[in-house]
Amino acid sequence: MALLSDLLGHAVLSGSVLALGALGEVIAERAGVLDLGVEGLMSLGAVVAVMTVTATPHPWLGLLAAGLVGGLGAGVLALSSVVLRANQVLCGVAITFLGLGLSSVIGRSVAGIPISAVFEPVSIPVLSSIPVIGPAFFSQNVLVYLIYLVLPALVHFWMFRTRSGLDLRAVGENPAAADAVGVPVMRLRALAVILGGVLAGLAGADLTLAVVPVWSDGMIAGRGWIAVALVIFAGYRPVVAVLSGLLFGLVTAVGFMGQARGWPIAPAILNTLPYLGTVACIIVPMLAFAKLRSAMAAPAALGTPYYRSGR
């Protein structure tokens, strides 16, 4: 019982990073921008959070700084891939290089030093005393509640119940039509990319301030790319993206458990689980259910820059 609870708790915690990154990516991709900079922005967010918290021991300040840096980096991406309309794949990969390289350079002074100011678990009365799922779901840090409950609800409401959310989706599906009825295509796309970047930066901060309280080079280890893949798996739906973050947290947690309990499998092999699991999860459903292909389809204009004169 304690094992199951531990496993779930770890899944919720490590899944929150993926969920947050994927949520940001959903926003950008729904607006038609394939944002491949998540990995780099997460890395920058993670290191900036650690540096801020080392200077001033307030985790909230670290979170804020990480969000700002994520937004700033995404601003560069928006400028190049939305305003200048350069190739989105290249710009995203470039931002990832830039983010990974820069965070390694600026993080040298704090690398390997554990931080003390982290988000502590908050137990919710009554609910946290439910056996098994109580400790796993209801005595987590405050970010977990924000990421799994508040944010997805907000994003879902915005995207599917408000006028500006409809505009956002229109820009991703058919920018020419949106433009024709007066929706500012470029502004909305840039905004979506920046918002996605803020969430990616926050996801990085979530990793260092709540999951692994230390910065080390390469610690993002593909979490940003998994987040991008989860968006495909979730069929570009915010709530599903967050839930699939939880699912992949579970896959990570199984590998982690195996290591901690000394299963007779090499740790390196166990560590391949999240990546293989992600690849399997975006391919197998397509293979098994042909009907899913249209329901889970990407926004029609995803990855294509919009030219007003283009016909």
């Binding site: 190049s80 190739n87 990969v93 990974l100 390289g101 080079d217």
Partner: peptide, 20 residues
């Protein structure tokens, strides 16, 4: 790792420059 950052910057600049 500075070289990775420099590379990223270069890709970004060239991708934008080609478009401009």
């Amino acid at each position: 790792s500075a070289v990775l950052a420099i590379t990223g910057l270069l890709v970004l600049a060239i991708a934008a420059g080609d478009e401009l």
